[in-house]
Design a binder for these strands. Structure first.
Length: 871
RNA sequence: GGGCGUAUAGCUCAGUUGGUUAGAGCACCUGCCUUACAAGCAGGGGGUCAGAAGUUCGAAUCUUCUUACGCCCACCA
C-alpha cells in the first residue's frame, strides 16, 4: 500500500475489528496437532468463573499470558492456548437463583413445560423446580455469559485457539473429572467417611479447608455456673451458650492448679442436667476465660479434635440448615438427670437458628440464675465459607475425601520441581501444604456440578450400604447416577428396598479445575494428544489461588501419573486501588473493559498490562492507558512517515537491502538495535516481558526523535545514491524490527502496519506468525560502535538546546558549529557531519578543533551560533 | 504469633552481577507548526532512594535492626 493511500488518522476501533476478523479467517492462532512436543508450547489457561462480567483485573492477567503466548509463537513454537469457562458450581447456582427466582428441589419431577423467565429485581420469592429444570436454567445462563466473555477476549486480542474452547460442566470435562475420581479410587487416594465436616448452613454443603476464610466477628462471653455431682461449682466462659445441650465434657489444662480437684468427677450442665465428665485437656488455656471450658459437638475445631480422640458420644443439635434440630433428653446420647425439665427447656430452642437460640439460651440462663453477670462483648475470629455470610458449623456428614495429609512431603517435592515466577511465590505453596490439617473434602451437597460416578445398594430396609459402593467403569463415563441406572440393576429398582440409589452429591469445582491440563490433553481418551500436551509448559494464575488451583492441580497430576502438571508457573499480581487494597468488583464494574477499549483501544489496555511486572500488584491508573494509546498512535504515524522515505514520487517502493547499509552512522544504529533484540529475547525468556516493553518503547521514541530526524533528509533527497539507500535500508529494517518487538504487546497496530508492505515482502500475512527478530550478524553490525549514536545525539542536543533557549523553531538556521574533541572524536564526527548539517540546518561547514587527550576528562564539546535571520 | 512482599521525584513506575552526576512517563514551567504525529517536538525545574547501623575504595543495590503498608497462614473458648 502506498503511503498516499493511508488514512490520515489512526482509528483503533476499526482496525481492531478488521484484524479480529482477519485472524479468525486466516487461522493465525490455530494449534497444529501434528507438530512435535518440542516445537509445541502448551499453556494451561485459567478458565474464568462465569459470573456475569469480566473486569479490569481479568484483562490485566489474561493479557500478560497472551503476551507470552505471542512471543513464543513468533519464536516458532506451535502454541496450544485453549480457553475454558468455569461455569460449574456454586457461583452459577447462586446467580441463577437470583436472576430467575428459582431454587432446586431434587425431589420434584422434571417439568417439560417449564418456562424460564428472568425474575424481577430484588424479589425474594423463589419457585422450586426439579434438578433437571434447574440445571437447564444454569446452562442457559452460562451460555449467555460465555458469549459476552468471548466477545471481550476477542476484542482484547487474546490469541486463543477458539476451537479448543471448553466448559468445565460439559460432557468432556465431566468425563475427565469422573475418570480422575475413579483413577484416584483405584490408586487408593480416595475414601468416604462420615465425620464432622465444615459445613455452610446457607448453601447447605460441606466446604474444603481451602475455601474457608477467617473473619472478625463480634460475640459475647457468657459466664455460666456449672455444678458437679458433689455440688461443687465453677464457672465456664463460652461464646456459644446455644450449644449447652450439646455439651459432652468439661475440660481444663492438666497442670491448672485450680481445677485439679475436679478431674475425674462429673459436672451437671445447667438447665439440661446432663452428667458430663471433667477431664484434663492440653488445648485448654489457663490464661483464657476462667481456664475451664465446656466441650460441645461442635463449637470449633478444638472440639472436633477432642471428640475424635475421646470415646464420648456425638450430640449433634445443629442441623444442616443451621437450626437446632429436634432431640429428646433421656433418649440415646442425650442423657439427663431431669429429662422432663430438660425437654421443657429445649422445646423453647428447637427450630431456632443458632444465633436466635443463643439469645433465648442467655435469657433462660439468666432466669435460672446460672448466668454470672451480663454477657461481655468480645471480638472473636470465626471461620466462614468464602462465599457465605454465616459462620461455618461442624456437622457430621458423609463426604468423599482425597488423602493429602499423608502425602504432604511428596507434594512439597513436586512443587520444587516447578519453576515459579516470581520465585518467592513457591514459599506460599510450601507454607500452605505444610499447614494443611485436613484431607481434601471433594463432595458438595449441591446440584450444578460433576456428579460422583457412584451408586449404593439399598438394604432390605431401603437404607444405603455405604461400605459397598458401586463404581462406574471408565467406558460408561460421563454418568449421572441420578439419571443412569447402576450396573446390574434395573431402573425400576431405584430407591426401592434391595435396589439402588445414586450418590446425591456433586464434586467441588476444584475437583474439575484441578484436571484442567488433563481436560485439555484428553487424558484417558487420546494418548497421542496427551503425550503432546502434558505436562504443559506454563500455568498462569493469580496468587490467592495458589492454595487451591495450583495446589490441587499439582496434587492430582502427582497422584495420577507421578508428574508435575507444568514446568513453569507464572503468578500475576492484582489490580489494586490507590489504597493498595484489591480492587473491588463493584468499583471495577463502574467502568467496564469494553468502555475502556472504546476510549483507549485494546492495544492501550494491553500496554498497561504489559508494563506490570509478574507477581506485582499494580495500581489502577487510567493515565497508563493514555500513554499506551499515544504509543499506538505514534507507531501509526512514525510508520507512515518511514514508509514515505521508502517510496519514490510515484509511490513505488525502494529496493534497498541490508547490503546497502554502508554509512557508519547507519551501521552503528543497526548495532544498537541488535543489542535491543538480544536484551529483549533474554528478558522474554525469563518472563520479564515488562522490561522488554519498557526498553523497546524507549528505543522506539529515540528512533523517532533522533535517528529518523538525522537521516530523513538523506533518505529522501539522496534516494538514488548509495548514501540514500543506506538510510532507506536501515529505516526499513528498523521499523520492521520494532513492529516485531512490539507485536506481542500491541498486536493490532503492529499487524496493521505490517500489512502495508511487509506482509507482501516477507510473504507472511500476519506479523504474529512472522519470526521473532534475529540479530543482524554481518561484520558491519557487530564491529560497529554505538558510540557514534551517542556523539550524534550530543551534537543534536546542543543545537536543539540553543534554538530552544533562543525561542527559535527547530528549522532555524545554524550559522556556525564548532566541534572540539580528540582525533578519535573528530574522525567519528566526520562520518555523520553531513547528516548533522541537514538535520540542524547548518549553513557553513562545521569547524573542528582537535585537542590532546586527557583521559580523566570529557572533551567532546560542541558550540553553535544561530543565524540572525531565518533565511 | 509465623511467613512472604513492598517502600526510589507531587503521581505511576524502571533501576540487571555493588561502579561516574539515580532514570522514564504523567503533572508542572519556557518555547516551537519542523517531509508523519499539537494525541506532536525542543528545552527546563523537581529526589537525604522509608529510618538507623554495618560490610566495602565505593551502597538505591549486600547484611542486621526499626517503621509503615499489603498479602498469605495460625484452635478462634
Amino acid at each position: 500500500m502506498a503511503t498516499k493511500d493511508l488514512p490520515k488518522k489512526y482509528n483503533s476501533l476499526d482496525t481492531e475489528k478488521k484484524w479480529i476478523d482477519n485472524w479468525e479467517k486466516e487461522g493465525v492462532y490455530k494449534y497444529d496437532a501434528e507438530a512435535s512436543r518440542e516445537k509445541t508450547y502448551v499453556i494451561d489457561t485459567p478458565p474464568p468463573t462465569v459470573s456475569g462480567s469480566l473486569h479490569v483485573g481479568h484483562v490485566f492477567s489474561y493479557t500478560q499470558t497472551d503476551i507470552v503466548a505471542r512471543y513464543q509463537r513468533m519464536k516458532g513454537k506451535n502454541i496450544f492456548y485453549p480457553i475454558g469457562w468455569d461455569d460449574n458450581g456454586l457461583p452459577t447456582e447462586r446467580r441463577v437463583q437470583t436472576l430467575y427466582g428459582i431454587r432446586c428441589n431434587p425431589t420434584l419431577a422434571y417439568d417439560e413445560n417449564f418456562q424460564l423467565k428472568k425474575a424481577k429485581d430484588g424479589t425474594k420469592d423463589q419457585k422450586e423446580v426439579s434438578r433437571k429444570n434447574f440445571l437447564e436454567a444454569c446452562e442457559v445462563q452460562t451460555g449467555e455469559d460465555e458469549k459476552k466473555y468471548e466477545a471481550l477476549w476477542r476484542h482484547l486480542g487474546l490469541s486463543f485457539d477458539w476451537e479448543q474452547q471448553y466448559e468445565t460442566i460439559n460432557d468432556h470435562s465431566r468425563k475427565i473429572s469422573q475418570a480422575s475420581f475413579l483413577d484416584l479410587k483405584d490408586k487408593g487416594y480416595v475414601y468416604s467417611s462420615k465425620s464432622p465436616t465444615m459445613w455452610d448452613t446457607t448453601f447447605q454443603t460441606a466446604v474444603a479447608q481451602a475455601e474457608v476464610e477467617e473473619r472478625d466477628k463480634s460475640g459475647h462471653y457468657h459466664d455460666i455456673t456449672f455444678k458437679t455431682e458433689t455440688n461443687e461449682s465453677f464457672v465456664i466462659s463460652t461464646t456459644r451458650p446455644e450449644l449447652l445441650a450439646a455439651c459432652i465434657a468439661v475440660v481444663a489444662h492438666p497442670d491448672d492448679e485450680r481445677y485439679q480437684h475436679l478431674f475425674g468427677k462429673h459436672a451437671i450442665t445447667p438447665l439440661f442436667h446432663a452428667k458430663v465428665p471433667i477431664l484434663p485437656a492440653e488445648h485448654a488455656d489457663p490464661e483464657k476465660g476462667t481456664g475451664i471450658l465446656m466441650v460441645c459437638t461442635f463449637g470449633d475445631t478444638a472440639d472436633v479434635d477432642f471428640w475424635k480422640s475421646s470415646d464420648l458420644p456425638l450430640k449433634q443439635i445443629i442441623g444442616r440448615s443451621g437450626k437446632l434440630v429436634e432431640i429428646t433428653f433421656g433418649e440415646d446420647v442425650f442423657n439427663s438427670e431431669k429429662p422432663v425439665e430438660a425437654n421443657k427447656v429445649y422445646s423453647q430452642l428447637v427450630g431456632l437458628y443458632a444465633k436466635q437460640a443463643k439469645k433465648v439460651m442467655a435469657d433462660l440462663l439468666a432466669e435460672s440464675g446460672d448466668l454470672v453477670g451480663e454477657p461481655r462483648p468480645t471480638e472473636q475470629i470465626a471461620k466462614f465459607y468464602e462465599k457465605g455470610d454465616q459462620p461455618l458449623e461442624f456437622i457430621s456428614t458423609r463426604q468423599w475425601f482425597i488423602k493429602i495429609l499423608e502425602n504432604k512431603s511428596s507434594l512439597i517435592e513436586q512443587g520444587k520441581k516447578i519453576k515459579w515466577y516470581p520465585e518467592h511465590m513457591y514459599k506460599r505453596y510450601e507454607q500452605w501444604v505444610e499447614g494443611l490439617n485436613q484431607d481434601w473434602c471433594i463432595s458438595r451437597q449441591r446440584f450444578f456440578g460433576v456428579p460422583f460416578p457412584v451408586w449404593y445398594k439399598l438394604d432390605a430396609e431401603g437404607e444405603p450400604k455405604y461400605d459397598e459402593p458401586i463404581y462406574a467403569t471408565m467406558d460408561m463415563l460421563p454418568v449421572d447416577p441420578q439419571m443412569d441406572t447402576a450396573p446390574g440393576f434395573d431402573e425400576s429398582q431405584r430407591g426401592k428396598a434391595n435396589g439402588f440409589m445414586g450418590d446425591p452429591d456433586v464434586m467441588d469445582t476444584w475437583a474439575t479445575s484441578s484436571v484442567s491440563p488433563q481436560v485439555s490433553s484428553h487424558w484417558t481418551i487420546d494418548d497421542k494428544r496427551h503425550a503432546q500436551l502434558f505436562p504443559a509448559d506454563l500455568r498462569p494464575q493469580a496468587h490467592e489461588i495458589i492454595r487451591t488451583w495450583a495446589f490441587y492441580t499439582i496434587t492430582k497430576s502427582w497422584m495420577h501419573e507421578k508428574k508435575v502438571p507444568w514446568h513453569n508457573i507464572a503468578i500475576s499480581g492484582w489490580v489494586v486501588n490507590p489504597d493498595r487494597k484489591k480492587m473491588s468488583k463493584s468499583k471495577g464494574n463502574t467502568v467496564t473493559p469494553e468502555d475502556l477499549i472504546e476510549t483507549y483501544s485494546s492495544d492501550a489496555l494491553r500496554y498497561w498490562a504489559g508494563k506490570a511486572k509478574l507477581g506485582q500488584d499494580t495500581i489502577y491508573d487510567e493515565n497508563v492507558f493514555k500513554i499506551g494509546q499515544r504509543l499506538g498512535t505514534k507507531v501509526f504515524n512514525a510508520s507512515k512517515f518511514v514508509m514515505m522515505q521508502l517510496e519514490d514520487e510515484e509511490g513505488n517502493p525502494c529496493q534497498a537491502t541490508m547490503a546497502d547499509i554502508t554509512e557508519p552512522l547507519d551501521k552503528a544504529w543497526v548495532t544498537k538495535i541488535n543489542k535491543l533484540i538480544e536484551d529483549s529475547t533474554r528478558s522474554f525468556d525469563k518472563y520479564e516481558y515488562n522490561i522488554v516493553l519498557s526498553n523497546v518503547e524507549a528505543s522506539f521514541w529515540e528512533f523517532c526523535d533522533l535517528y529518523v530526524e538525522l537521516v530523513k533528509t538523506r533518505a529522501y533527497k539522496q534516494r538514488e545514491q548509495a548514501s540514500g539507500k543506506s538510510a532507506q535500508a536501515t529505516l526499513e529494517w528498523t521499523l520492521k524490527t520494532f513492529l516485531k518487538l512490539f507485536a506481542p504487546f500491541l498486536p493490532f497496530i503492529c499487524d496493521e502496519v505490517w500489512s502495508w508492505s511487509f506482509a507482501q515482502k516477507e510473504d507472511q500475512p500476519s506479523i504474529h506468525k512472522a519470526p521473532w527478530p534475529a540479530v543482524e550478524t554481518g561484520e558491519a553490525f557487530t564491529q560497529s560502535s554505538t558510540q557514534l549514536i551517542d556523539l550524534a545525539k550530543e551534537v543534536m542536543m546542543v543545537a536543539r538546546g540553543e534554538k530552544s533557549t533562543q525561542q527559535k523553531s527547530l528549522r532555524w538556521p545554524v550559522e556556525e558549529m564548532i566541534v572540539e574533541g580528540t582525533k578519535e572524536h573528530l574522525d567519528s564526527f566526520a562520518t555523520f557531519a553531513g547528516d548533522i548539517a541537514l538535520a540542524t540546518n547548518l549553513k557553513n561547514n562545521p569547524v573542528t578543533k582537535e585537542i590532546s587527550s586527557k583521559p580523566e576528562e570529557t572533551f567532546f564539546n560542541v558550540k553553535v551560533t544561530l543565524s540572525e535571520t531565518k533565511e
